[in-house]
Simulated scan of single mutants.
Amino acid sequence: MQGNQTIIDLLNAQLTLELTSMDQYLAHSKMYEDWGIEQLHHKLAHEYEEELDHAKRIIERILFLEGVPDTASRKAIHVGCNVEEMLANDLNAEREVAAHLKKVISECEKAQDYVSREILQTLLDDTEMDHIYWLEQHINMIKLMGLPNYIQSQMAQGHE
């Protein structure tokens, strides 16, 4: 089905953001693993997989609209040097993803591309209700309990 080129371009821009977040989560996940912070390692490995799923959904939609998915482009990733910086960088990345999703959803509405809008709404729900919410919770936990206690709480298996 021949799609609206503006929507295809916006979907490709969203794909770039999802792939960039995926790369950042992979880097942070492996850093947490190296530092022995297992809970953060597992959580961010899971987030990497979710970003990959988001990218797959967008690619499938671009292909359905007879567009060419841009799987090569990335924005600069922001790898942190410590736990607080890493969580803050991930939160900033997710907020950028959410803001762009809202823009694309709005444009899909204008173009009457309701299927793309629905796919993107699902991604937005996941981004806001899972990724952003979790990151805000954990940044707040650091404020409440202090960084050393937070890190210790993330080292043991069975906590999230």
Rank of each mutant, 00 (worst) to 15 (best):
M1C: 03
Q2C: 00
T6S: 13
T6L: 14
T6Q: 15
I8M: 11
N12K: 04
L15D: 13
E18M: 03
E18G: 05
L19W: 02
T20I: 04
S21W: 00
M22N: 06
Q24M: 15
Q24V: 03
Q24N: 08
S29Q: 09
E33F: 14
D34Q: 14
W35P: 02
G36T: 08
I37D: 03
E38A: 10
Q39R: 14
L40I: 09
H42S: 09
H42K: 15
K43T: 11
E47L: 15
E49R: 11
E50Q: 15
L52D: 02
I58P: 10
E60Q: 13
F64W: 05
L65Q: 11
E66Y: 07
G67E: 08
P69A: 08
D70H: 09
D70R: 07
T71N: 06
S73V: 01
I77K: 05
G80R: 01
G80W: 04
G80K: 01
C81Q: 13
E84A: 07
E84N: 06
E85V: 05
A88V: 08
D90H: 03
L91H: 07
N92L: 10
A93Q: 15
E94V: 02
E94K: 06
R95C: 10
V97H: 08
A98V: 05
L101R: 04
V104F: 07
V104P: 09
E107M: 12
C108L: 07
E109W: 03
Q112H: 13
D113W: 04
D113N: 07
Y114F: 15
V115K: 04
V115Y: 00
V115I: 15
S116H: 04
I119A: 04
Q121T: 14
T122G: 10
D126N: 12
E128M: 05
E128W: 02
W134Y: 14
E136C: 08
Q137Y: 07
Q137N: 13
H138D: 00
H138Y: 12
I139R: 13
N140W: 04
M141G: 01
M145G: 01
G146V: 11
G146Q: 07
G146Y: 08
N149W: 00
I151F: 03
Q152V: 09
M155T: 15
M155Q: 15
A156E: 10
A156W: 00
G158F: 10
G158N: 10
G158M: 11
E160R: 11
